Simulated scan of single mutants.
Amino acid sequence: MGARVLVVEDNQANMDLMNYLLTAFGHQVLCAYDGEAGVAMARSERPDIVLCDLQLPRLDGHGVLAALRADPATKDIPVLAASAASVSDGGAALRREGFTGLLPKSIEPDVLLPSLDAFLPPALRSSFGGEAPAAAEATTAPKARVLVLDPSPMGEGMAAAVLLHHGFQVEVAADTGAVSALGKQVFDLIVVDGPASSSFVGATLVKFAATPVVRKVPQDPAELLQAVRTALQNG
């Protein structure tokens, strides 16, 4: 089923990645780019949980928490502090302040999703790691071997995480060395999750010239899966 997750984050790249990953695994994402907008959206939308950066324009994460806890309509919504800064006390001070918990500011699916799920009731948890592929996908996805070319650190792991979850066999390569390490493996499809103009990507596509390619990864996970299925059928 998934949860309605309000993400309060002023960095566009971080927001895009969080939105992509959470949506891919069944959550509905609400986006706010500053603290005041986050408070207003929490009051109007009543999300199931809030992921709030601590360093925000107009109103920082501590101010967002104070405003939500002071309002009877939002005081019981779980609010997780999301920060890239190291926390020496394991988040104890943040919890004393009123945050429900501390969420690692990570774009790694196996870190972010279980951490979020720990603060959600079972009915609202993501499908990460446990759900079998849908019947319509099971007939083709497990047989398909996909090479994901990911030369951009900002795209790290997003397409691969979605494809792995849906039953594909996935290898990820970020440079020519990683491609060389694959040896003579054969792939059914190549997905370019990053700048297609990269010389590394160009050289790899020449090496696998007979393999169909999805050259631009759609932002929407459902569109990504459809693009992959279409490329496999037409390949």
Rank of each mutant, 00 (worst) to 15 (best):
M1R: 11
R4T: 14
V8T: 06
N11R: 05
N14C: 00
M15W: 03
L17Q: 02
N19D: 07
L21A: 08
F25I: 09
G26T: 05
G26Y: 13
Q28D: 12
V29H: 06
A32H: 07
A32F: 14
A32Y: 07
A32V: 00
A32Q: 08
Y33W: 00
D34M: 07
E36H: 03
V39T: 04
V39N: 05
A40Y: 03
R43C: 03
S44C: 05
E45L: 11
R46C: 02
P47K: 01
D48P: 00
V50E: 07
C52F: 03
P57D: 14
R58Q: 07
R58C: 10
H62V: 09
G63Q: 15
V64I: 12
A66R: 10
L68Y: 11
A70T: 12
D71L: 09
P72S: 04
A73M: 06
D76C: 03
D76H: 14
L80A: 13
L80W: 15
A82W: 02
S86W: 10
V87F: 13
S88G: 05
G91F: 08
A92Q: 14
L94W: 06
L94P: 12
R95K: 15
R95F: 08
R95I: 15
E97T: 15
E97C: 12
L102I: 05
L102T: 05
L103W: 06
L103H: 10
K105C: 11
K105I: 04
E108M: 01
V111T: 01
S115Q: 13
L116Y: 12
L120E: 06
L120P: 02
S126Y: 08
S127L: 08
F128G: 09
G129W: 08
G130S: 10
E131S: 12
A134Y: 02
A135G: 09
E137T: 10
E137K: 15
A138M: 15
K143P: 01
R145V: 03
V146G: 08
V146T: 06
L147E: 10
L147S: 00
D150W: 03
M154S: 03
M154I: 04
G155C: 13
G155Y: 09
G155L: 15
M158Y: 11
V162A: 15
L164T: 09
L164N: 12
H166M: 11
F168R: 08
V170K: 13
V170A: 14
V172D: 14
V172S: 03
V172L: 15
A174R: 11
V179N: 09
A181C: 02
L182F: 13
G183V: 00
K184F: 13
K184S: 14
D188P: 05
D188W: 02
L189S: 03
V192D: 11
V192A: 09
S198N: 06
S199E: 02
S199L: 10
V201I: 07
A203I: 01
T204G: 02
L205I: 01
L205P: 04
K207I: 00
F208I: 04
A210F: 07
V213G: 01
Q219C: 05
Q219H: 02
A222D: 14
E223R: 12
Q226R: 10
V228K: 04
L232D: 03
G235M: 09
G235V: 09
